[in-house]
Simulated assay, not measured.
Amino acid sequence: MRASNHLIGVVNFLTFLLSIPILGGGIWLSSRANNTECLKFLQWPLIAIGVAIMIVSLAGFAGACYRNTFLMELYLFVMFFIIAALIGFIIFAYAVTDKGSGRPVQNRAYLDYNLEDYSGWLKDRVTDNSYWPKISSCIRDSKVCSKMGRTVNGVPETSDMFSYRKLSPIESGCCKPPAECGYTYVNETTWTPGGGLVGANPDCTTWNNDQQMLCYSCNSCKAGVLGSLKKSWRKVSLINIVALIILVIFYVVGCAAFRNNKRMDNDEPYGEARMTKAQPSRIHL
C-alpha cells in the first residue's frame, strides 16, 4: 500500500514538472505575439492546459501523501480530459498551419511570402478586417523593420550583403517590397523603382518608403505573419507532443498504482487472501 502511494506521489510530482514546459510554451507564444505577430488567440488555451495540469497534479500529489482517495480519483478523472484537450490542441495547431511556406528568390538567401499560398481558418483570422489593422499596428510599434539596419565597419551594408541575409517572415513580408516588383535596394527599408516596369503584384504599388507605411498593408505582410505563426506553433507543438507522450505514460502508471491501492483497500490485512476468508478450509494443518 505504501509503495503504491509513493508511486502515485512520484507520478504526480513528475506530472507537475511536465506542466512547466507546456506552460512555458504558452508564455513564449504570448511574448512572441506581443513583440511581432500581436496575436493572442491560440496561446491562451495552451497556458490554460499548463496551469490545469499543474493544479491537478498538486491535488493528486496531496491525495497520495495523505491517502485521500477523493483527490486521487479527481486527479485521474480531470487528467483524462486534460490529455484529450492537449491532443486536440496539437491536432488543431498542425491543421491550421498545414499549408503555406516561403518561396525561394533567385540569388537571394531570404524567402518571399505570398498570401495565396495560405488558406483556412488561420488565414481568415489574420486577414479579417477587424484583426489586421491591430496586427499591422502592433508590428509597426514593435519597430521590427527599423531594427533591420546593419553596418560593416561603420558603413551600411550593400545590396549584395543584404541579399545574403536570412530574413524572418515578418522582415521579408512587411519591411521590403516583394522581389518580383523589381525595386532597387537603397537600404533595408528604402527601395526605389527599378528601370523596368513594376510587377503586376498589387503589393508593388502598395509599398511605400514612408517608415510608418512600408508594406504593412501588403498581402506579403499578412503572409509573413502567417509564416511566422507557423514556425512558432510548430516549435511549440513538437514540445507538446513529447510532453503528451510522457504525460500518457505517467497517467497509465498512475491508474495502475491507484487500482492497486483500491484492490488492497478492499482486501484483508497483508498476508491474508480474500479467498481464504470467503471459503475457509476445513483442514487445518
Rank of each mutant, 00 (worst) to 15 (best):
C218L: 08
S220Y: 07
C221I: 13
C221E: 08
C221R: 07
K222A: 15
V225R: 03
L226G: 06
L226S: 09
G227L: 02
G227E: 02
G227S: 03
S228Q: 12
L229R: 01
L229Y: 03
K231D: 13
S232T: 14
W233A: 03
R234G: 02
R234H: 15
K235V: 06
K235R: 05
V236G: 03
S237A: 15
L238Q: 05
L238H: 04
N240G: 09
N240Y: 07
I241Q: 02
I241F: 00
I241K: 01
I241H: 01
I241R: 00
V242E: 04
L244I: 01
I245S: 03
I245M: 06
V252A: 15
V252C: 14
V252L: 15
V253M: 12
V253C: 12
G254N: 06
A256H: 11
A256N: 10
A257C: 03
F258S: 02
R259K: 13
R259C: 13
N260R: 15
N261F: 03
N261D: 04
K262R: 15
K262Y: 01
R263Y: 10
R263C: 08
D265I: 11
D267R: 13
D267G: 11
D267E: 10
D267N: 12
E268R: 08
G271T: 07
G271V: 03
G271C: 09
E272T: 11
E272H: 11
E272L: 12
